[in-house]
Nucleic acid binder design. Sequence first.
DNA 1: CCGAATCCGGGGAGATACTG
DNA 2: CAGTATCTCCCCGGATTCGG
Lengths: 125, 125
Amino acid sequence: MDDTETPRNLAHGNCRKVSRVLARVGDKWSVLIVMLLGNGPRRFSEIRRMVDGISQRMLTLTLRGLERDGMVKRTVYPTVPPRVDYELTPLGHSLREPVEALGSWALANTHRIEEAQRTFDSRDL
Amino acid sequence: MDDTETPRNLAHGNCRKVSRVLARVGDKWSVLIVMLLGNGPRRFSEIRRMVDGISQRMLTLTLRGLERDGMVKRTVYPTVPPRVDYELTPLGHSLREPVEALGSWALANTHRIEEAQRTFDSRDL
DNA sequence: CCGAATCCGGGGAGATACTG
DNA sequence: CAGTATCTCCCCGGATTCGG
């Protein structure tokens, strides 16, 4: 078609690597939390309150996953009561840019998508 | 923090809209197929062969989803045997850009991610 | 060749209750 | 406050079979 160049980015074994990142991005909570932490460190319960609808379990699992991937730094303050801060690493911070690009695209095209869905759903059935 | 501007892109009800798109992007096959169709229209069985490991069922479902969202145009040629072509719509085509940005990020940072994972997995336990 | 329908197993995700 | 543990339910996704 109009390809200036065939994208080799998503070829061969690269697909696997990219897919894993995409799976994280597509994860229900990960991106939300990354964007939230983009505004600075937050405590566990702060995130819990800010991310409406997330369960304690899912928040823990999501943060663990992000920490494991090197996106988030976890800091425990051995006080009583305990306090745990989460903040973006440079890696996690760098992820925000492409994610925001995707977010902008989504916002710009939501109307078109929803219209397409209505058209699709209204025919036949 | 270092925010030049607080991103309102991912706030309020916008989250829902963006999340749906993100879910599609995070889908195991959708992005792969979109990138594949970026090189031009393909037949059902062509895609099936090119996307290694996808089941017939999942290919059908994925293509239906993409068609419903207005990303893909489905064209049936009433020949015998039947022939069905799939091609990107302008909307689907426009999605490639932010997706490729994310793919590039993934490739550029895969090494860092895997290293973080090894570090994470090797401590405690 | 393209796709729908059905069956079925495994993992994700919520709710709840318990520790340090 | 910040998790962990357990249970359960549900949906996704593969395999298979049938239809146009």
